[in-house]
Design a binder for these strands. Structure first.
Lengths: 231, 231
DNA sequence: GCCTTTCTAGGTACAGCGTACGTAGAAGAT
DNA sequence: ATCTTCTACGTACGCTGTACCTAGAAAGGC
């Protein structure tokens, strides 16, 4: 294909991976995605640059562009790569609440392993092959409910949003740098001292024994499931 | 302060805006935040660069660093700037559900006006002066419930997450480029054709009369409120 | 067999980014 | 009047995504 006047599709999944002609590609989408995931897990999503991923693969920077026409597409590959970690049952059990509870636990585990995922999926739809497997299982699990098709999709989006939100909240509470935590304490002390925020001050003063995140998760999840799927 | 060996606090709110000495600053946090918000509203958040904001203010690029030690802090200022758009009642009405419903509607309006907000608040806590006013109102509104202090904060975080999620979902459904929508349709047709995703195919085939977003919002909001605040 | 076509690999180059550092000068403190 | 501390901002560095180009490999048509 000529370089000019051709516009790559917005969706990498519409871009054929290889089309017979020419030399065998030295890499694959899967190996590229795996390399990018490795970097993001170890050094954070902001360390994932085209140069860095290419270096990880031992390839030239610009060679990557044969596989990934735009950097955004690299993110799509990464999302679908981790979506491949789901170990989905062959079919729904008939108990939608049990199925979705199990699915959500699995997803939380994935989000904990790959802390950069919530940020990415908030921006881009996860509709690669593995994302579609997830969607298919979710939809089959809630097939027995009275939800309309559109409502099922909404419910999936909301559940995903809740899980990402929870994972980020958990990480913010436990994974911040000491300096950051210290600054936060200093600031909130000043806020309490100012006297302008009595309700907030009262909550802060409560001491807040940090509840077991898993317990909080289970409780909130059940409530969300009820909210989403019950008529 | 000397340039070296001093480390700015992680929180811009711990950084004094001006300390008497030296020449009068030509700008203010408020004017800088307003300029950045103007740019983000008009051209998207990725158009907000230190150079661009400085230019908008008619200042030299590096002058901005006297007000905003790091770019992240500029985001904090922007978030608090739009949090200033809330027109909060003087105090809670005593009906927490009514108060939170009104608060959520106001917030949705803000998120619709400033589509870049969800992405930012997912990353950074909104604890500037205006964010604290919001927090204070939320906490005072749910003061009558049986929630613990920590549970109240969780509830606020979850409600915020829901609102951002909803705003992004709404925008994705209505605000994408024609090219993007066309590519999506092409892709999903192929997906349905493949036969590998029967439940998804069925949902897609349903036609999905696009429900009134406001109705969907009201319904989901009430369910979320119930899930979060009822014992 | 060869030739043409179409692919892959990857170097070079450019505009734009955040920001470290240094200098010049203004204004409050003594 | 002097010292100190602030503001304004130019220059420069290392990094980013990626447009464009060249070189060579492999498949299709004859």
């Amino acid at each position: 294909m000529p370089h000019s006047q051709y516009e790559a599709p917005e969706l990498i999944w519409l871009h054929p991976e290889h089309s017979g002609r020419g030399p065998r590609p030295a890499h694959s989408r899967a190996s590229i995605a795996a390399a990018a995931v490795r970097i993001a897990d170890a050094e954070g999503i902001e360390a994932v640059s085209m140069r860095r991923v290419a270096a990880e693969l031992g390839a030239g920077t610009m060679s990557l562009y044969n596989y990934v026409p735009k950097k955004e597409h690299l993110f799509d590959l990464m999302i679908d790569q981790v979506a491949g970690e789901y170990d989905l049952p062959a079919g729904p059990s008939g108990d939608w609440r049990a199925d979705l509870t199990a699915l959500a636990s699995m997803q939380l585990a994935v989000l904990r392993r790959h802390a950069w995922v919530p940020r990415l999926v908030a921006t881009r739809p996860a509709i690669g092959p593995n994302g579609l497997r997830y969607t298919e299982f979710f939809l089959s699990a809630v097939a027995g409910t009275e939800l309309s098709g559109a409502a099922k999709m909404e419910a999936m989006a909301q559940l995903n949003g809740f899980l990402c939100q929870f994972a980020e909240w958990e990480r913010a509470a436990t994974g911040s740098s000491p300096r950051w935590m210290a600054d936060m304490v200093t600031y909130l002390q000043g806020v309490a001292m100012s006297g302008r925020y009595p309700s907030l001050t009262q909550v802060l003063a409560e001491g807040s024994t940090p509840a077991d995140p898993n317990a909080v998760f289970d409780r909130l999840l059940q409530r969300i499931l009820t909210a989403l799927c019950e008529a």
